[in-house]
Design a protein around this nucleic acid. Structure first.
Lengths: 201, 201
DNA sequence: CCAATTATGTAACGATCGTTATCAAATAAA
DNA sequence: TTTATTTGATAACGATCGTTACATAATTGG
């Protein structure tokens, strides 16, 4: 698997360093994070950071992608793993809420929803990343609803796209509450009712 | 109304300067905004800023309050102004969406929802401001639902607090979409359905 | 062993950061 | 007109910003 042969071998793990960068950006946002913060957390010097990740902005983009494919993916995975559609919806929302304040070593809320929007419009690429993620979620949920329809577990005229957006939008409220350090207990109690609502027709 | 008598009179309008500060923070967030950005936009020098607003962090807090009582208030006002509860819900969501990308001189999305969460946890006071605003919205909506119940326009066992949270959470999805510069047309088409959902029982 | 190549660590670059000292300008009170 | 008081503008403070030159270390291919 390691392709490189010539030259001094790299002394750190790229993915591990990227993980550390995610955590820092997640905590302080793009502009609140300094190169010093990053190199400290990643355990490397800035020349190494620049040679591997480009610059701060490119590292931020890489952090968004990395988060999306790891922490950010688990609510989606929980959704996909449930065969029953109602359970899938609850699993998505529930996993999200749990993730929002899971380990004390991670900041509250979702990195994408809590930190990236601030950068949209003045940090290059941020808006595009957001759009891609939102559209991805919308169409993933909508596709699942369509699948359920073709399977007969949802009525033929169920408004898949509208309810997909609804699911995603609800989640954003949960994220904001978590980021604000408000208790998730009351929201979790709402989940059953909310899933019913998303599916009602 | 002007109380001051002695000394050189102030050469700028406090509220006007605060408005300019809001716009800059709204665009770039707390850490992305420099003192230079602020003094340029506000049309004053930094010593004036410090004497009137304290420091950058205190100005940020003042900006949050000012936004809440102006731009941020209009969806709430639209809600309060409607006597019919369903129309009130639609007015709240619709006014919010319209406000999210109204004038080109204002950044997209809601300042509070788009920019303040990034600062929660590492800018003093941000978390508390968010908590206060969220709780305020929750209880405003819940109180209105309770009022409707006592008037008989909602069933006696209508879950006011849960639906209040639901309304607020939905709004957060709209804000994220607007900040990501996604079209609001499809979301606006959902409003009727969403209002029905919030009121359904 | 000797190039060639790649990564690391140090240290520095100019620029900008948030904040404040200093002094001149403008007003009210005496 | 003087004195007291407050605001204005200029300029500077040390610190930190993101980024990069440069020399050294560690590896592979000859």
């Amino acid at each position: 698997m390691p392709e490189k042969k010539v030259g001094r071998p790299r002394g750190f793990d790229r993915e591990q360093a990227l993980n550390a960068a995610v955590t820092v950006f997640w905590e302080k946002g793009y502009d609140g994070t300094s190169m010093r913060d990053l190199t400290d957390a990643m355990g490397i010097n800035s020349p190494s950071l620049y040679s591997v990740f480009g610059d701060k902005q490119q590292l931020f983009m890489a952090a968004i992608d990395h988060y999306s494919q790891n922490f950010g993916k688990s609510p989606i995975s929980a959704f996909n793993d449930e065969t029953d559609i109602k359970k899938a919806i609850i699993a998505f929302l529930e996993t999200g809420i749990t993730e929002d304040d899971s380990t004390p070593e991670h900041p509250k809320g979702c990195f994408i929803s809590s930190c990236v929007p601030t950068s949209a419009g003045h940090v290059e690429g941020a808006t595009e990343k957001l759009q891609h993620i939102i559209k991805g979620a919308d169409s993933l949920f909508a596709a699942r609803f369509e699948e359920e329809k073709s399977r007969g577990s949802l009525p033929a005229d169920f408004p898949s796209e509208e309810r997909a957006r609804l699911m995603f939008d609800l989640r954003q409220g949960h994220v904001l509450r978590a980021r604000a350090d408000l208790p998730s207990a009351r929201i979790e109690a709402d989940l059953e009712s909310r899933a019913n609502m998303i599916l009602s027709y």
